[in-house]
């Protein structure tokens, strides 16, 4: 470096030798930024096509049932045999909370139970992979109208016991509020959602490549939210009885058999179940 090339930052002009080198360095860092941005973006796993209609409230009417979890049963018309086609919309509270508090508050305000009533609710839709959820964004005020209604015939079927491998996620985030709404980076959020009363859902991959979602409850139908918290967001194996409530499956986890953690979530890329069993889904028998 020549004598004239000594750099002093507070002088108005940078020596030419420095400027040439710095210019090359900056160009290199600029190219690095372009390459790094592309590689980092390209290297990410794909995001699913789940939707959360944030800021776009929807009004929907249906019969409320809290068995096995808060569901709004919406008649979508009749099938060819004249039977009502029911879609069960899973109800969720605002933030990381279940829907119970908002529904209980609305019931107390009206001084009547809401179970079995025709409710008109305003909320924010969440949907993905054939499942629909409704966030009661305004809390108790989401219940716009309550009317008496004729009960809808439930299609409840008890199925054999099974062992499943998959990930326990919170359905609110997984089905649309967050991307990704599963895995290690989302574990804390899922644990908070489930601790807040949102029913845990086991996501499991089937032999035919499709994905099944099972609401996890206890052997007697009780909530097990606290019990599953340590394994949320991990690859796990758990066993229990499967019960179909209309278009939702419930796994009544046999708590005498501890949930086994399997380490890496990467194994979820492989089919977890091998045998065909049921009309609604296919998975392996114990």
């Amino acid at each position: 470096m020549s004598e004239q090339d000594f750099y002093i930052g507070y002088l108005p002009k940078m020596p030419n030798g420095h400027w040439r080198k710095i210019r090359s360095f900056l160009a290199g860092v600029g190219v690095l930024a372009i390459v790094a941005a592309f590689m980092l973006v390209k290297g990410q796993n794909d995001f699913n096509t789940a939707s959360f209609e944030l800021g776009k409230p929807t009004v929907v009417s249906g019969i409320l049932t809290t068995n096995p979890v808060p569901l709004l049963q919406v008649v979508q018309g009749n099938d060819l045999s004249g039977q009502a086609v029911i879609q069960s919309i899973l109800l969720i509270g605002f933030g990381k909370h279940g829907a119970e508090a908002a529904l209980d508050s609305a019931a107390a305000k009206r001084k009547m139970p809401l179970e079995g009533k025709l409710l008109t609710l305003e909320g924010t839709l969440i949907y993905h992979d054939g499942k629909t959820l409704l966030e009661l964004t305004k809390g108790p005020a989401a219940v716009l109208q309550v009317e008496q209604a004729q009960p809808i015939r439930r299609d409840i079927e008890r199925l054999p016991g099974y062992t499943f491998t998959g990930e326990i996620a919170d359905p609110k985030c997984y089905f649309g509020v967050m991307k990704p709404g599963e895995g290690k980076v989302h574990r804390s959020c899922a644990a908070l959602c489930i601790a807040g009363g949102i029913p845990p859902v086991l996501k499991t991959k089937l032999a035919d490549g499709s994905t099944a979602y099972l609401i996890v409850k206890g052997g007697n139908g009780e909530a097990v939210n606290q019990a599953v918290l340590p394994v949320v967001g991990q690859a796990v194996q758990l066993s229990g009885q499967v019960v179909r409530y209309d278009d939702w499956l419930v796994l009544e986890w046999d708590q005498s058999q501890a949930i086994e953690t399997l380490g890496s979530l990467m194994i979820l890329d492989a089919p977890m179940c091998t045998e065909k069993g049921l009309a609604a889904v296919t998975y392996s028998s114990n």
Binding site: G95, K96, H186, S188, C189, G196
Partner: peptide, 8 residues
């Protein structure tokens, strides 16, 4: 995103 709006 991950920690707000919960019970704690």
């Amino acid at each position: 995103q991950f920690h707000a709006l919960g019970d704690v």
